[in-house]
Every structure is written in C-alpha cells, then in structure tokens.
Design a protein around this nucleic acid. Sequence first.
DNA 1: CTGAAAGCGCTTACAG
DNA 2: CTGAAAGCGCTTACAG
Lengths: 354, 354
Amino acid sequence: MKKQKSKAIPPPVRGKRGPRPRNSVTLKMVAREAGVSASTASRIINRTVNVSDELRLAVEAAIAKFNFRPNAAARGLALGKTLTIGVVSQAMDSPFYGEGLRGIEHRLQQRGYAPLFMSGNWQEKEEIRCMEELINRGVDGIIMFAGCLGDAALKAYARKVPIVVTGRLLRAKGLVSMQVDDRNGAMVAMRHLLDLGHRRIAFVSGFENHPDANERLSGYRSALAAAGIAFDPQLVVPGDFHEEGGMQAVYQLMDANIPFTAMFCVNDQTAYGACLALFRKGMRVPDDVSVIGFDDLPSSTYRVPPLTSVRQSVQQLGDCSAEAILQLIAGRRPQITLPPVELVVRESTSRVAR
Amino acid sequence: MKKQKSKAIPPPVRGKRGPRPRNSVTLKMVAREAGVSASTASRIINRTVNVSDELRLAVEAAIAKFNFRPNAAARGLALGKTLTIGVVSQAMDSPFYGEGLRGIEHRLQQRGYAPLFMSGNWQEKEEIRCMEELINRGVDGIIMFAGCLGDAALKAYARKVPIVVTGRLLRAKGLVSMQVDDRNGAMVAMRHLLDLGHRRIAFVSGFENHPDANERLSGYRSALAAAGIAFDPQLVVPGDFHEEGGMQAVYQLMDANIPFTAMFCVNDQTAYGACLALFRKGMRVPDDVSVIGFDDLPSSTYRVPPLTSVRQSVQQLGDCSAEAILQLIAGRRPQITLPPVELVVRESTSRVAR
DNA sequence: CTGAAAGCGCTTACAG
DNA sequence: CTGAAAGCGCTTACAG
C-alpha cells in the first residue's frame, strides 16, 4: 500500500524521517492557538517567569480548549527528571508492605510525584533487578522499603540516585535511612506481658540474623533481665515473618514440651500463625496462652480474638520515607522523626492463669 | 560565580544552549566505544535487524563495560510509548487489591512492562484524577481493577488509551472487560451451606447496588429457589465489602432477633468482620453459625478458624487483566478466559446444629 | 518580558 | 548491513 502510493504521487511531502508523528496535542499547538511561542507557553505552564496577564490567559484558554497535558516523557527527557519515585518492597500483597506503600503513595501524590512500585520477593537478586530497572527508567529517587539488599550495594546505588532505606541504620552520601525503634518496642511488649504476670514467655523470631528480629530479641532479653528473669534460650524459636513461621514455632515448642504461658511474636503475621497453631492444639488465646504481635496491622483489629500488638504505624513509616526522599531530592538533609512505638492492648493477652 | 568567570575567559565553549548535560552513559558513548554508529547500536540493542556477529559482540562488550541502560524517557519519546501500564485500583493496602496488583505486576514485569499504580480510594472523583494523571504520563494502557468509574466515562477514556476493566461487562472499542463468575460462585457457596443442612442463611451484601454484590445476591436467590426455600428479605443485610460491614450486619440481625444458622458474606473481609461480631456476641463459628466468604484471600487460610470461601484467585484475575492489556496494545482482541470459581472448604462451616 | 535555537537520548526512514 | 540526519515534545541559556 505504501509502495503503490509512492509510485503514483511523490510521498505527501512528509518532509521528515524519524518516527511517525504522534497525534496528541502538543505544546506547539497550544502556543500557536494562543499566539505565543512554545517557549513562552512552557514558561507560563511551569510558572517559571512572570508574563503579562493577557498572554497567561490566552495560553490557559488554549490549554483548556485542547485539554492539553504536557508529555511526561518529553518533559522528563528535557528536565532530566521524571517526577517518579521508585519504590522497592518485597511484595505488594503483604499486609505489612501494603500499608507502607499506601503511606508512600499518598504522600507522593500530594506532591505531584508518582510511585513506581517493584517487588523483590525477599530475594536480593530480584531487588537488584528492581534497582537497575528503576534507575533505567530515570526515577528521581528510590525508596527501599524494608529491603534485604546489602549495605554496600545500597551505598553504591546511592551515588547514582538519591535513596532512602527503611529498617536499618546506614549513613552515606545521597542516602538516608530510617529505623523504627524495634528494641524499645519489644521492651514495651514484654513489659505488658510481664505486668500480666507471665514468666515463661516465648519469642518467635524472624529469619536468622535479620536486623529487625535481632533488635527485637535484644529488647526481649533486656526486659527479661530488668524483671530479674533468667533468659531461657529454649524459649526463642526462629520464624519467617509470616504465618507459617508462627505455626511451626508453636508446634516446635509444644512438641518439645517446653512450657510457656505467653508468646511475643516478631510481627503480627507471625502472631496470626501462632494463634492458629494454638487453636489447632486445643489451646485458647488468651485463656491458655497470651499472644502479642508487632506492627499492629489493620487486620489485627479484626482477628478473633483481636490481637494485642506494638504499633509502629507502617503507613506512617511509608509517609515519612516519602517525605524524606522528596527532601533529599530537593537537596536538603531530611530531618524526619518517626512517631514512637505504642502498645495497643486488645484481647489476645490476659493475666496469666492461676 | 557564573558571571565572574565569563568575564575572565569566554565560557568554556559549551557550544550549546538547552539544559545542562546529564552525566549518565549514553547510546552514543557505547556506539563510539564499539566503533559503530548510534543507529547500529540501537538496532543491535533492540534486535531490530541482523548485524554481523563481530559488531554485535563489540556493542555488547561496550554495553557491559559501561553498564549502559537506555534512557527510558528518551526511548519513550522516540517510540511514542513508555512500556508502562497504568493500574487504578481502590487501595494498595487492601488484601483484595494487594493480591490483584501482585498478579498484574508479575505478569507485566516478565514482559518488560512496569505498572504505575494509583489508588482511587473508592471515590469516582479520585479515579478520574488517576486516569488523567496516567494519561498525561503517557502510559501505554490502563487496567482499571474493580473500579467504580461510570461506564460512559470509561468508554470515553478508551478512545485515548487501551483499557481493560475488571468486575463488569462492557463492550467498546479499545476496551475489554473481564468479569468473574459471581453468580455461579454464589451458587456454589450456597449449595455448600444447603448441603450442610442450613435453611436460614443470611447474605451480607456490599455497597448498595454494586454490580458484584448484585450478582452474588442473584446467585444466592437462585440457589435458594433451587432448594425450594422461600427467599426471606430480612436475611439480606447491606455491608461495605469490609470488616466493619460484616460486623454491623451481625449486630443488626441479632438485635432484630432474626434467626439464622449460616451466613454467606459477599467477600472474605466481610466474613472476617462477621466472625468477630459473632465472637463478641458469644456465638461460636462454626458450631453456632457457619460462615462462608468469597475471594479466598491468602489470609483466610490463617483465620481462626480458617475460613471456608469461594476462590476466584484475585491474583490470577490480575494476571489475566495484564495479559489482556498487553494483547490489546499489540492490536489483538484479547482472548482470555478466567479460571472458574472454586469452593474451598475449611473450618468455618459445618453441618447445622441438631 | 519573549522568541529562536539547541539540546535531552533515543529510533527509524532514507540512502547508500 | 550501516550511517547521517530528522524527529519525538519539551525546557532553558542566549539574545534581544
């Protein structure tokens, strides 16, 4: 078809080579309509200079008339930025991450930025893929939300793009980290259990050597020590930050006949699993054993029974990290303080029996 | 500072005007290193033509050496597409949406696309904001995942960008819809309850007039009819697709002294709420009342007791919608079939008492 | 205050 | 098969 035509008549003087034209409305069209140059139209749109009201109005009218929206790719190319923030987390369908991502999205949106989410699925290799992809796409900054990428790699990336990372302590140029007060949170949880008279308190941890888990374990031990109770290593069981780990922990403890009247779980999901396993074993929560979690996920309110937990507002953590990356991009050194952790007493904990 | 310099020496022959140069590695640098033109390098990268192995290797080496990644904005500008798919849902921190988004993300990622998620928060106005923003950003297509935007508006948007919408039936150019088999799913759920001997089965619905809720109600009624049981309007109670609605429904039913031995909830979250309210009222699940949900969210496995539900694999729904938008963009008419709904019997339902 | 021009980094129609 | 050139739609340093 193309060929045929060019035989008969010379090609319709398309006078150009590159790719075929797009059909959307462009700045140039708007400018022409308003009787100004593209430069001026651009400046008016970006409020980057003062122009006469007359021109401004004309341009605004033209914009409205055509329903013009600047092409983000072109703008990004020219500006060298994309108004997009990359966010790497582990999975979107985890209540923990879901809440955090919501906080990020909300804050970013009200600042004109959009988040580009990518999931690492708890694997360092995948996180690297995410980082690379995000950098290729020219995001203006990256939030690594509770990721497992090594500190060194993170620092290296921070030389190419501003980064904020949650869940660890790390100082480097172009990078800011924010960590919730895990240790203190754990102590708060333990104090609650201790106050209820519990002495045999199990701790269900997370992955081996995960920083959060370690910090919480440390809080667990301190609280025990402060109460004058000897630390019994038999009472700490590894988990995986998920329901499954909580279930296995209970089975392991009970199969080994290790007595306990309460469990402090490294996070809410672990606690959910623990509750189910306890149920399976015919134990009642909290009558037979008290269970406390960490995170206070929204769904904890609706568990049966509602779960007592240490609140760290994951959503707020997301919000703060978004604020931090924005400040970092703006060239400021972020000055953000996370809200303190807080005990939320519900119905999964009670005074120890007898 | 700028000024000073240009007094002494003529500005370092920057020979250009526009914005300052970026510092990333560009195609041109790679091409030079490999001893070819940018055109050739581009073609090799995009496998858009055959070149000699020699050149290919040279270019690949250069890419590796510089760790070159094509600039997405530039590519997007040149190509007129962004390899980005907009996804509007209601909230990222909902287990339902979380699961769907995960499905979308996964499928898109393996096709080289990235999802740009935006949340409408159950408000049409916000959904419109999302659509506009997404279109400005030049996404190649949009997936509206269970949104509430009107059909007409959706059709209008479909003229500017390919759209796939889940949760409703709608035909239009540039648009494809996919709907799970709500009616049949509801019948499956009801049949299960009926088989267990239940006769007084409550139905907790969603928002007034929500299509999904309506379809499920219709299935509820059909199953009742098929079993020769008269429909009792007192047994259907409105909800909100969330836990709160499920709780209120139980209270409403019990306060009005309307007897029932089982509840069919419009979705799992509603069922969670119902279970909690039942617990509060001193009723045991399933001994006193059986509860069945719809969606089979991942967390339903870990409820106490584990929830019986109708599985529709929200993740798969996400996956299919991603596949559909990709096909639509490629100019094909998507030919996707959703997996059938499926009953998952767990421990929240049992034979009616006595 | 305003416009013409150059440039952002890529792709591809054209012409060897 | 390969390169020079034009173009994608915007922004901004330069020059009025």
